[in-house]
Design a protein around this nucleic acid. Structure first.
Lengths: 124, 124
DNA sequence: CCAAATCAGTTGCATATTGCAAGCAAAAAG
DNA sequence: CTTTTTGCTTGCAATATGCAACTGATTTGG
Protein backbone atom coordinates (compact mmCIF):
# COMPACT_ATOMS: atom_id res chain seq x y z
CA UNK A 1 0.00 0.00 0.00
CA UNK A 2 1.13 3.50 -0.88
CA UNK A 3 3.95 3.00 -3.42
CA UNK A 4 7.54 4.04 -2.58
CA UNK A 5 7.49 7.41 -4.44
CA UNK A 6 6.58 7.34 -8.13
CA UNK A 7 9.22 9.82 -9.32
CA UNK A 8 7.96 13.28 -10.17
CA UNK A 9 7.19 14.20 -13.75
CA UNK A 10 8.84 17.64 -13.61
CA UNK A 11 9.75 20.36 -11.16
CA UNK A 12 6.57 22.31 -11.93
CA UNK A 13 4.72 23.03 -8.68
CA UNK A 14 1.39 22.29 -10.35
CA UNK A 15 2.55 18.96 -11.74
CA UNK A 16 4.06 17.98 -8.39
CA UNK A 17 0.92 18.90 -6.47
CA UNK A 18 -1.06 16.82 -8.94
CA UNK A 19 1.29 13.89 -8.39
CA UNK A 20 0.47 14.21 -4.71
CA UNK A 21 -3.29 14.54 -4.81
CA UNK A 22 -4.42 14.77 -8.41
CA UNK A 23 -6.70 11.80 -8.68
CA UNK A 24 -10.44 11.36 -8.38
CA UNK A 25 -10.55 10.68 -4.63
CA UNK A 26 -7.71 12.13 -2.58
CA UNK A 27 -9.04 15.68 -2.54
CA UNK A 28 -12.49 14.48 -1.55
CA UNK A 29 -11.04 12.73 1.48
CA UNK A 30 -9.29 15.96 2.40
CA UNK A 31 -12.54 17.84 1.91
CA UNK A 32 -14.24 15.49 4.38
CA UNK A 33 -11.45 16.05 6.86
CA UNK A 34 -11.93 19.80 6.55
CA UNK A 35 -15.62 19.20 7.14
CA UNK A 36 -14.78 17.59 10.45
CA UNK A 37 -15.06 13.92 9.58
CA UNK A 38 -12.63 11.75 11.49
CA UNK A 39 -13.59 8.12 11.20
CA UNK A 40 -13.37 5.61 8.39
CA UNK A 41 -17.10 4.97 8.39
CA UNK A 42 -17.79 8.68 8.07
CA UNK A 43 -15.77 8.91 4.88
CA UNK A 44 -17.49 5.86 3.49
CA UNK A 45 -20.87 7.48 4.04
CA UNK A 46 -20.07 10.56 1.95
CA UNK A 47 -22.43 10.96 -0.99
CA UNK A 48 -19.78 10.03 -3.56
CA UNK A 49 -19.55 6.49 -2.07
CA UNK A 50 -15.84 5.82 -2.20
CA UNK A 51 -14.91 2.14 -2.36
CA UNK A 52 -13.39 0.93 0.90
CA UNK A 53 -10.18 -0.31 -0.65
CA UNK A 54 -9.58 3.05 -2.29
CA UNK A 55 -10.33 4.89 0.93
CA UNK A 56 -7.87 2.74 2.85
CA UNK A 57 -5.25 3.32 0.16
CA UNK A 58 -5.73 7.10 0.08
CA UNK A 59 -5.70 7.47 3.84
CA UNK A 60 -2.45 5.49 4.04
CA UNK A 61 -0.98 7.62 1.26
CA UNK A 62 -1.93 10.88 2.98
CA UNK A 63 -0.65 9.73 6.36
CA UNK A 64 2.55 8.68 4.64
CA UNK A 65 2.91 12.11 3.06
CA UNK A 66 2.37 13.89 6.35
CA UNK A 67 -0.87 15.60 5.37
CA UNK A 68 -2.99 13.48 7.68
CA UNK A 69 -2.32 11.85 11.03
CA UNK A 70 -3.87 8.75 12.41
CA UNK A 71 -4.22 8.62 16.15
CA UNK A 72 -6.04 6.58 18.74
CA UNK A 73 -7.59 9.01 21.22
CA UNK A 74 -7.04 8.08 24.86
CA UNK A 75 -9.72 6.00 26.40
CA UNK A 76 -10.85 4.81 22.99
CA UNK A 77 -9.78 1.92 20.85
CA UNK A 78 -10.68 3.04 17.35
CA UNK A 79 -8.35 5.38 15.52
CA UNK A 80 -9.25 8.78 14.15
CA UNK A 81 -7.84 10.69 11.22
CA UNK A 82 -7.06 14.39 11.29
CA UNK A 83 -5.37 16.90 9.07
CA UNK A 84 -1.89 17.93 10.12
CA UNK A 85 -0.82 21.58 9.84
CA UNK A 86 0.56 20.68 6.43
CA UNK A 87 -2.80 19.24 5.48
CA UNK A 88 -4.67 22.27 6.71
CA UNK A 89 -2.42 24.45 4.57
CA UNK A 90 -4.38 23.14 1.59
CA UNK A 91 -7.35 25.25 2.61
CA UNK A 92 -6.77 27.96 -0.04
CA UNK A 93 -6.58 25.29 -2.73
CA UNK A 94 -9.81 23.57 -1.70
CA UNK A 95 -11.38 26.98 -1.28
CA UNK A 96 -10.49 28.07 -4.79
CA UNK A 97 -11.77 24.82 -6.26
CA UNK A 98 -15.01 25.00 -4.30
CA UNK A 99 -15.62 28.59 -5.31
CA UNK A 100 -14.98 27.81 -8.97
CA UNK A 101 -17.29 24.83 -8.93
CA UNK A 102 -20.07 26.75 -7.23
CA UNK A 103 -19.87 29.53 -9.74
CA UNK A 104 -19.30 27.58 -12.94
CA UNK A 105 -20.99 24.23 -12.57
CA UNK A 106 -24.73 24.13 -12.52
CA UNK A 107 -26.46 22.34 -9.69
CA UNK A 108 -23.59 22.38 -7.23
CA UNK A 109 -24.15 23.48 -3.67
CA UNK A 110 -21.83 24.07 -0.75
CA UNK A 111 -22.04 21.79 2.23
CA UNK A 112 -18.89 22.34 4.20
CA UNK A 113 -19.89 22.71 7.81
CA UNK A 114 -16.55 23.95 9.19
CA UNK A 115 -16.42 21.52 12.12
CA UNK A 116 -17.22 24.22 14.65
CA UNK A 117 -20.89 24.92 13.93
CA UNK A 118 -23.10 22.35 15.63
CA UNK A 119 -25.81 22.79 12.96
CA UNK A 120 -28.95 21.89 14.92
CA UNK A 121 -29.95 19.07 12.62
CA UNK A 122 -32.07 19.58 9.51
CA UNK A 123 -31.39 16.03 8.42
CA UNK A 124 -30.95 14.48 4.98
CA UNK B 1 -13.96 10.50 -28.03
CA UNK B 2 -14.90 12.56 -25.00
CA UNK B 3 -17.68 10.52 -23.38
CA UNK B 4 -21.27 11.81 -23.24
CA UNK B 5 -21.21 12.99 -19.62
CA UNK B 6 -20.25 10.41 -17.01
CA UNK B 7 -22.90 11.41 -14.44
CA UNK B 8 -21.70 13.39 -11.48
CA UNK B 9 -20.93 11.71 -8.22
CA UNK B 10 -22.63 14.33 -6.05
CA UNK B 11 -23.63 17.97 -6.07
CA UNK B 12 -20.49 18.99 -4.17
CA UNK B 13 -18.69 21.74 -6.08
CA UNK B 14 -15.34 20.16 -5.31
CA UNK B 15 -16.41 16.72 -6.51
CA UNK B 16 -17.92 18.19 -9.67
CA UNK B 17 -14.82 20.22 -10.45
CA UNK B 18 -12.77 17.08 -9.98
CA UNK B 19 -15.06 15.22 -12.35
CA UNK B 20 -14.27 17.92 -14.88
CA UNK B 21 -10.51 18.21 -14.54
CA UNK B 22 -9.36 16.02 -11.70
CA UNK B 23 -7.04 13.67 -13.48
CA UNK B 24 -3.29 13.62 -13.95
CA UNK B 25 -3.20 15.63 -17.18
CA UNK B 26 -6.09 18.01 -17.78
CA UNK B 27 -4.84 20.70 -15.43
CA UNK B 28 -1.37 20.54 -16.95
CA UNK B 29 -2.80 21.23 -20.39
CA UNK B 30 -4.62 24.22 -18.94
CA UNK B 31 -1.41 25.36 -17.29
CA UNK B 32 0.32 25.27 -20.68
CA UNK B 33 -2.50 27.29 -22.20
CA UNK B 34 -2.10 29.90 -19.45
CA UNK B 35 1.61 29.91 -20.25
CA UNK B 36 0.77 30.89 -23.82
CA UNK B 37 1.12 27.57 -25.61
CA UNK B 38 -1.27 27.17 -28.49
CA UNK B 39 -0.26 24.28 -30.67
CA UNK B 40 -0.41 20.53 -30.24
CA UNK B 41 3.32 20.11 -30.63
CA UNK B 42 3.97 22.68 -27.93
CA UNK B 43 1.94 20.71 -25.41
CA UNK B 44 3.72 17.54 -26.39
CA UNK B 45 7.08 19.17 -25.69
CA UNK B 46 6.25 20.09 -22.10
CA UNK B 47 8.63 18.48 -19.62
CA UNK B 48 6.02 16.02 -18.35
CA UNK B 49 5.80 14.38 -21.79
CA UNK B 50 2.13 13.72 -22.16
CA UNK B 51 1.26 10.83 -24.49
CA UNK B 52 -0.27 12.06 -27.74
CA UNK B 53 -3.46 10.04 -27.43
CA UNK B 54 -4.09 11.45 -23.98
CA UNK B 55 -3.39 14.98 -25.18
CA UNK B 56 -5.82 14.62 -28.08
CA UNK B 57 -8.41 13.22 -25.71
CA UNK B 58 -8.02 15.99 -23.12
CA UNK B 59 -8.09 18.77 -25.69
CA UNK B 60 -11.27 17.37 -27.18
CA UNK B 61 -12.76 17.08 -23.71
CA UNK B 62 -11.88 20.67 -22.81
CA UNK B 63 -13.19 22.02 -26.12
CA UNK B 64 -16.34 20.04 -25.54
CA UNK B 65 -16.76 21.55 -22.07
CA UNK B 66 -16.26 25.07 -23.36
CA UNK B 67 -13.06 25.75 -21.46
CA UNK B 68 -10.92 25.75 -24.57
CA UNK B 69 -11.60 26.77 -28.15
CA UNK B 70 -9.98 25.40 -31.22
CA UNK B 71 -9.68 27.82 -34.11
CA UNK B 72 -7.81 28.10 -37.39
CA UNK B 73 -6.31 31.59 -37.53
CA UNK B 74 -6.88 33.37 -40.85
CA UNK B 75 -4.15 32.92 -43.39
CA UNK B 76 -3.01 29.71 -41.66
CA UNK B 77 -4.05 26.12 -42.04
CA UNK B 78 -3.19 24.62 -38.71
CA UNK B 79 -5.51 25.09 -35.77
CA UNK B 80 -4.63 26.69 -32.48
CA UNK B 81 -6.05 26.13 -29.02
CA UNK B 82 -6.89 28.92 -26.63
CA UNK B 83 -8.61 29.29 -23.30
CA UNK B 84 -12.12 30.67 -23.42
CA UNK B 85 -13.26 33.18 -20.79
CA UNK B 86 -14.61 30.23 -18.88
CA UNK B 87 -11.21 28.57 -19.10
CA UNK B 88 -9.42 31.69 -17.97
CA UNK B 89 -11.69 31.84 -14.94
CA UNK B 90 -9.68 28.91 -13.59
CA UNK B 91 -6.76 31.21 -12.91
CA UNK B 92 -7.37 31.45 -9.13
CA UNK B 93 -7.48 27.67 -8.94
CA UNK B 94 -4.23 27.16 -10.83
CA UNK B 95 -2.71 30.01 -8.83
CA UNK B 96 -3.62 28.44 -5.50
CA UNK B 97 -2.26 25.06 -6.57
CA UNK B 98 0.97 26.57 -7.87
CA UNK B 99 1.52 28.57 -4.70
CA UNK B 100 0.91 25.55 -2.53
CA UNK B 101 3.30 23.40 -4.53
CA UNK B 102 6.01 26.03 -4.48
CA UNK B 103 5.78 26.41 -0.74
CA UNK B 104 5.26 22.83 0.33
CA UNK B 105 7.03 20.61 -2.18
CA UNK B 106 10.77 20.63 -2.24
CA UNK B 107 12.50 21.25 -5.53
CA UNK B 108 9.61 22.86 -7.36
CA UNK B 109 10.13 26.06 -9.25
CA UNK B 110 7.79 28.43 -11.08
CA UNK B 111 8.01 28.66 -14.81
CA UNK B 112 4.85 30.35 -15.93
CA UNK B 113 5.83 33.07 -18.36
CA UNK B 114 2.46 34.85 -18.61
CA UNK B 115 2.43 35.03 -22.39
CA UNK B 116 3.04 38.79 -22.40
CA UNK B 117 6.62 39.06 -21.21
CA UNK B 118 9.05 38.37 -24.06
CA UNK B 119 11.66 37.09 -21.55
CA UNK B 120 14.90 37.91 -23.39
CA UNK B 121 16.08 34.32 -23.38
CA UNK B 122 18.21 32.92 -20.58
CA UNK B 123 17.77 29.47 -22.04
CA UNK B 124 17.21 26.15 -20.28
C1' DC C 1 -21.94 -12.95 29.81
C1' DC C 2 -23.76 -13.67 25.04
C1' DA C 3 -25.55 -12.45 20.46
C1' DA C 4 -26.05 -9.20 16.96
C1' DA C 5 -24.56 -5.17 14.68
C1' DT C 6 -21.06 -2.07 13.35
C1' DC C 7 -16.34 -0.85 12.18
C1' DA C 8 -12.17 -0.86 9.81
C1' DG C 9 -10.36 -2.74 6.83
C1' DT C 10 -8.44 -6.87 3.12
C1' DT C 11 -8.83 -9.85 -0.92
C1' DG C 12 -10.04 -11.23 -5.59
C1' DC C 13 -11.54 -10.26 -9.78
C1' DA C 14 -13.89 -7.47 -13.69
C1' DT C 15 -13.62 -3.19 -15.98
C1' DA C 16 -11.80 1.30 -17.16
C1' DT C 17 -8.00 4.38 -17.74
C1' DT C 18 -3.05 5.22 -18.87
C1' DG C 19 1.10 4.78 -21.10
C1' DC C 20 3.92 3.37 -25.09
C1' DA C 21 5.29 2.60 -29.61
C1' DA C 22 4.16 2.65 -34.21
C1' DG C 23 1.86 4.33 -38.13
C1' DC C 24 -0.16 7.80 -41.25
C1' DA C 25 -2.03 11.62 -44.01
C1' DA C 26 -1.78 16.67 -44.39
C1' DA C 27 1.09 20.70 -44.17
C1' DA C 28 5.38 23.16 -44.26
C1' DA C 29 10.24 23.46 -45.36
C1' DG C 30 13.98 23.00 -48.52
C1' DC D 1 9.44 17.16 -55.70
C1' DT D 2 11.53 15.29 -51.45
C1' DT D 3 12.06 15.50 -46.63
C1' DT D 4 10.63 16.86 -42.19
C1' DT D 5 7.35 18.22 -38.98
C1' DT D 6 2.82 18.30 -37.31
C1' DG D 7 -1.39 16.55 -35.58
C1' DC D 8 -3.30 13.16 -34.85
C1' DT D 9 -5.19 7.58 -34.64
C1' DT D 10 -4.64 2.68 -33.58
C1' DG D 11 -3.39 -1.42 -30.99
C1' DC D 12 -1.79 -3.38 -27.12
C1' DA D 13 0.43 -3.81 -22.43
C1' DA D 14 0.48 -2.03 -17.78
C1' DT D 15 -1.99 0.27 -14.07
C1' DA D 16 -5.65 1.98 -11.53
C1' DT D 17 -10.42 1.83 -10.23
C1' DG D 18 -14.84 -0.25 -8.88
C1' DC D 19 -17.45 -3.93 -6.86
C1' DA D 20 -18.77 -7.48 -3.95
C1' DA D 21 -17.70 -10.59 -0.62
C1' DC D 22 -15.34 -11.67 3.49
C1' DT D 23 -12.94 -11.16 8.09
C1' DG D 24 -11.67 -10.26 12.67
C1' DA D 25 -11.95 -6.90 16.07
C1' DT D 26 -15.05 -3.67 18.75
C1' DT D 27 -19.41 -1.94 20.37
C1' DT D 28 -24.14 -2.33 21.50
C1' DG D 29 -28.14 -4.39 23.55
C1' DG D 30 -30.17 -7.47 26.47
Amino acid sequence: MAPPEPARRSCCPIACTLDLLGDRWTVLVIRDLFAGKRRYSEFVRSPESIATNILADRLAWLVDRGLVERAVPEGKRRAEYRLTDEGRSLEPVLGAVARWGLKHIEGTEARLAPASEPTAAPRS
